[in-house]
Design a binder for these strands. Structure first.
Lengths: 211, 211
DNA sequence: CCGGGCATCGATCAAAAGGTGGAGACGCCC
DNA sequence: GGGCGTCTCCACCTTTTGATCGATGCCCGG
């Protein structure tokens, strides 16, 4: 298992970040950067071609496929490399899809170089490294009753978060106001709040909706 | 003016980003990286010590002083170096304070290496480089009537954004509901909306309030 | 010293939102 | 087939919010 260096693929749309990861990892013994990808699609291609042990994957790409989707595509194949998420910010909305997609680890870009190198070795061995902040939130998530909204409820809440009235929401979704109010009542119960603005605040905090 | 290479200070709390900027810029002729700073405070110290032409400044640091404050501190001194903001995301809330603080340019980290190098040269000459996305938003900002809220209005809106009712806001600020409603009416007029949730959405979009 | 912006409060009235307690239709799974 | 969750809708009522008039005191700059 230790007869070759760990072969690494760097996937990030920022040239500066790619150069930085390369600079940090190339000084470590036992690592080889075999390729870089500036898009998620390209990362999936390169990973599928083989010859890679660990993929360092950003979550945000300029457009097209995002990092979680790429991770799912990569890990779906037999003999796939491990995927280590290396991103700047962590919210529930980012972390959960990535982990569900089969990421082996989740690091933040402010990690010191030693931690990054250690995480790559851990990932190559198939074990998990989580940034402390991410681990904390995941634990809280498991403790809290899982309050996931249905697809329709999320649609309604997203429009409400844009400042639309019940009337406008009902028009946009081709519903009656009664239905919108019904959805909102369920949303309030699930989120433990009692007004639309509080629901938006809670959902933003939980990463259920964006912006 | 061209008798020495451009002396650069890199200020960013991410080791990876520092390494990346260094890797990108060191390959360019006429550039010398004279120092790195992992905190905004350290950047101010190093810049004050002299011997620097251009500071590459991130806006977000882990804690303490942020990049805009550091920029203000650096540019306040006579003979100060130019400050070029190099950050990941751009919102009004980030851009405006940095520019008011005296930044010479504003780039995003997804800029290609050539653009970064060109911006450093431009900054060293005292002229401005703006990322296209930033330039766009600044133009829109100038066209739109500048709707800045008063301190009190911002306080009220911040609490409203946390989901509090008028009653709760009035308690928290030791006011009557009448006063809160009066502030809200002014806020709606300034933001061009007609409900609290829409005001929160608009204020988040404009960077007037956070999270 | 006067005007204007700011912050504070009051009273009404109309509209919107929220609370309660339903109900029917659909799909899914055991 | 029966239960469960989701999505849809209705009626009635209370509370909250917003709109529109006000008013007062304070401070600051021309």
């Amino acid at each position: 298992m230790n007869d070759h260096p760990i072969r690494i693929l760097i996937a990030d749309d920022h040239p500066v970040v790619r150069a930085g990861l390369r600079a940090v990892l190339e000084t470590e013994p036992g690592f080889t950067i075999v390729a870089e990808a500036a898009t998620a699609e390209r990362a999936v291609e390169l990973a599928a071609a083989g010859g890679t042990d660990v993929v360092l994957m950003d979550l945000q790409f300029g457009g097209g496929m995002n990092g979680s989707q790429a991770t799912a595509a990569i890990t779906a194949r037999p003999g796939a490399p491990r995927v280590l998420i290396v991103t700047t910010y962590d919210t529930d909305a980012d972390t959960l899809p990535a982990i569900e997609a089969g990421a082996t680890g989740y690091l933040l870009k402010d990690a010191p170089p030693e931690e990054l190198a250690a995480a790559v070795r851990t990932a190559a061995a198939g074990r998990t490294t989580l940034a402390p902040a991410v681990a904390d939130r995941l634990m809280n998530r498991l403790r809290a009753p899982h309050s996931s909204l249905t697809r329709r409820e999320t649609e309604v809440l997203t429009l409400v978060a844009e400042g639309l009235s019940n009337q406008r929401v009902s028009e946009r979704l081709h519903l009656t106001q009664a239905t919108v109010k019904s959805h909102l009542a369920h949303i309030y119960a699930k989120l433990g709040v009692d007004s639309r603005t509080a629901a938006v605040a809670a959902a933003l905090g939980l990463g259920i909706i964006r912006r």
